[in-house]
Nucleic acid binder design. Structure first.
Lengths: 338, 338
DNA sequence: ATGAAAGCGCTAACAA
DNA sequence: TTGTTAGCGCTTTCAT
């Protein structure tokens, strides 16, 4: 009647293979000192019993886990997915797993998440972004674990940084349009400070426009960040209705830029002949659509790969001081901008 | 010189608050029996020391974790992200966390991943898809943990199923085009069996065409699955070059359908006037682009939400037998199909 | 409301 | 090459 059998332990395997639990432990670890015949017997017994190592117990005893905590704002974002993908790949070689959590662009949620993650005693922490609640900062600092902040240049880094200035990247886009002789340039972004990177991009737009002595009033707040295609489409409709003389539109992301483009297509407005459009992030949609969308490539995979490398160096002891690795986003000029 | 201070334990907090460790343990759990003054003292001490509960130890002692293992083929897929999002949301209320892994559309990788995940003793396992290696099946079966397979209707379910027939969904799309009087219908998909759901959709296409006595030779293998926009665009170019009389194209996903659409736009071919296009998955891009793309909505969030509900019922003991919950994908007719 | 003792399953350290 | 002992940090259980 005990339909909830307890799963077999190492002791069960040891008994079945007629060795001590310690020998089983050794046999299950790769490069260890067990005679081949014994190991074979043990593996057979383990397989027979359906034994699976309990990594909870193993971690507790060895005071060492094999995972790296990672937080991203949203699961549903190709850029962050690329970063996490590269990170996973880079860590796999060193036997490290990723423990992934997402904050839903909310610092309170990030704090909750970081506490959850730290309870599992990760070997390192990789966070997206450089703004955190005070308690979140304290938690991470107290953890005595290597920390990497990515996708941003934090004012007060918690540890290592692998990022870039979102503001500066957008400034380079503004500079590009201004160099082409345009002056009436709009920005489409979200309406609140949930997405700090989006906010930085908007700030970069304003700073650059002011630097050129240009009008910054074409600033469309398109809804709760992160805005996507639908919001971009609606914002473009609003812009076309209210500021018909606009020459170029810079969007907070390629997704909203694509939405803006779709509105132009529905209205028969030719891009880039009548208006130029640019995005951010080098999402696939922007490279395929017609016209393809001018954008900025922040090299998400590079961020992940470098984070993995850095973690391995730090855990290996060959790297100790805090680093700032600067990512250089590239401007990709495509068909949507004149 | 000890720059690697050991983090404080419950015993440290107990000493600081002048109570026993047991009382600290109780004070940190919500609804437990500790006087308010003692609890306040303990929480203050914990905060002071930067104490974070060690869930490794806690799980070992209580023989109970708080997470659910989830495998998805790829992180970078809005559909699976939606399922995981809904699952996370539904489980959060019950204090359960998700331990997420991705298989990269590879059954060998899934096996490796499942073993890793099972070592952490999850309370339940949610897998995407119903095809697994024999060892993977054995591992899961031996784990004596509720299992849910999603997004598919497995031949031999491991436990619960929340899914739909990908083949049947595509058949309904074929039926729709045939009812409109079309006969020369093509299918664009991947070229290997990595993506079993993609393969099922292709099978559904062939079966439906044969059922109508139609030619199934317009079957484009567009590269290594899962194919995306670029492959869809190239495949459409190939199709237009070789089978100019094609009336409709069904693509394995909206992403490839959007790529196909972009090729038509570049060549000045009017959709749907000259050719109809349909996708699968109800991705945002298909609803925004011009023309919008006819598709099938497999209700990804619904799958996740139902999985969460099912897990809670099973763990709560109110549900014991294996269930098959059938998702009914909806055909969304949009501008890209005549 | 609080405490003392025991032990979850595993592996570090030492012994043989 | 294999075994013995002890204990990781916590919570179950029982006692007060």
């Amino acid at each position: 009647m005990d339909n909830v059998r307890k799963p077999p332990t190492m002791t069960d395997v040891a008994r079945a293979a007629k060795v001590s639990p310690m020998t089983v432990s050794r046999a299950l670890k790769p490069g260890s000192l067990v005679s081949e015949s014994t190991r074979a017997r043990i593996l057979a017994a383990a397989d027979e019993l359906g034994y699976v190592l309990d990594s909870t117990a193993s971690s507790l005893r060895s005071q060492k886990t094999d995972f790296v905590a990672v937080t991203i704002p949203s699961l549903n974002n190709a850029n962050f997915a690329d970063t996490v993908g590269a990170l996973t790949e880079g860590l796999k070689a060193h036997g490290l797993q990723i423990l992934l959590g997402y904050t839903n662009y909310d610092m309170r949620e990030e704090e909750r998440l970081i506490e959850q993650l730290l309870r599992r005693k990760p070997r390192a922490v990789v966070m997206t972004g450089g703004k955190h609640t005070p308690r979140c900062r304290r938690l991470v600092e107290h953890a005595h674990v290597p920390v990497i902040e990515t996708w941003d240049l934090p004012d007060q880094p918690l540890g290592h940084v692998i990022g870039f200035s979102n503001a500066q990247a957008v400034q380079s886009m503004v500079d590009h349009f201004v160099a082409k002789g345009m002056t009436r340039i709009a920005f489409i972004g979200g309406d609140a400070d949930r997405d700090t990177r989006g906010l930085d991009r908007r700030r970069g737009f304003v700073a650059a426009m002011q630097g050129h002595g240009l009008d910054t009033s074409r600033l469309i707040a398109a809804g709760r960040p992160p805005i996507s295609m639908r919001e971009g489409a609606d914002a473009m409709a609003h812009l076309l209705d209210t500021r018909q003389d606009t020459e170029a539109v810079i969007c907070v992301s390629d997704l909203s830029a694509f939405g803006a483009l779709s509105t132009c297509q529905r209205r028969g407005i030719s891009v880039p002949d009548q208006i130029s459009i640019a995005g951010f992030g080098n999402y696939e949609v922007g490279s395929i659509c017609v016209p393809s969308i001018t954008t900025i490539d922040p090299a998400p995979k590079d961020i992940g790969a470098r984070a993995a490398q850095l973690i391995c160096r730090v855990l290996g002891g060959t790297h100790t001081e805090s680093t700032l690795e600067h990512i250089e986003p590239r401007l990709l000029l495509r068909e949507s901008s004149a």
